[in-house]
């Protein structure tokens, strides 16, 4: 009687082990990234277009290396641990949750695979003509067409939300972002943001960046 129960228990254990071992083998990185993106879509939406209500920017089609790097920064606390960075602190749990580097890379690959979504303009009052001149220093790293350069650690800006660009420029300027010693790329951005004297200058340069993507060029007043 006992041996029969033992045999049955062994059989169940074998089947469970086989299922557990088979699962990772059949799941490629893409499906892993899609599965993990389930957490992200709560704020960044299914298509990665983001939602300003949740302070979540458009991430659809961002370069994989850039998304992976930012996730690493949220994971290690380089981003998302500043008292005044409300949106960053909302991202921090995602960085903590994505404990394995391989998972962060899988999510980054999935985000990069999402089709680009042209953001709707929300800012008013920016002058792209003035912005074009102000953009000159930015083009050294982000490129003349704002497509970004991986070698310089500069992401593409041409399909980014204008409200997010403004927030990040303000954060770089005030030191909310980029003031951690470990944040090498952030430290490079800080002096660049300081070149923009005031909010008007930031809006101007953002208005010019918006002309480089395929988004509608002006926000509704």
């Amino acid at each position: 009687m006992i041996s029969r129960w033992k045999r049955a228990a062994r059989g169940v254990a074998f089947v469970l082990s086989a299922v557990a071992l088979a699962a990772p083998a059949t799941a490629d990185e893409g499906s892993r990234g899609r599965e993990l993106y389930g957490f992200c879509r709560q704020c960044h939406m299914d298509n990665g277009a983001g939602n300003p209500l949740y302070l979540a920017p458009n991430i659809a089609g961002l370069p994989e290396w850039y998304v992976a790097r930012q996730l690493d920064k949220f994971h290690s606390g380089i981003r998302g641990t500043n008292f005044d960075d409300v949106a960053g602190m909302r991202m921090r749990p995602v960085g903590i949750w994505l404990e394995k580097e391989s998972d962060r890379k899988a999510v980054a690959a999935y985000v990069a695979s999402l089709p680009i979504v042209e953001p709707a303009p929300t800012l008013v009052g920016g002058d792209p003509e003035r912005g074009k001149a102000l953009y000159a220093p930015c083009s050294a790293c982000h490129g003349p067409d704002a497509k970004g350069m991986e070698a310089l650690g500069a992401p593409a800006l041409d399909h980014q939300d204008d409200w997010y660009l403004l927030t990040q420029l303000e954060h770089f300027k005030s030191g909310i972002r980029g003031s951690k010693p470990q944040d090498v790329q952030g430290a490079q951005m800080r002096p660049m943001a300081m070149l923009l004297a005031d909010e008007q200058a930031m809006k101007d340069v953002i208005a010019y960046i918006m002309t480089l993507g395929g988004a509608p060029k002006t926000a509704k007043e």
Binding site: T81, N82, F83, S174, G175, I176, S179, R190, M194
Partner: peptide
């Protein structure tokens, strides 16, 4: 030090 410099704010 942070408050007195241009990088005011942050932890």
């Amino acid at each position: 030090a942070a408050a007195s410099g241009p990088a005011a704010g942050g932890r």
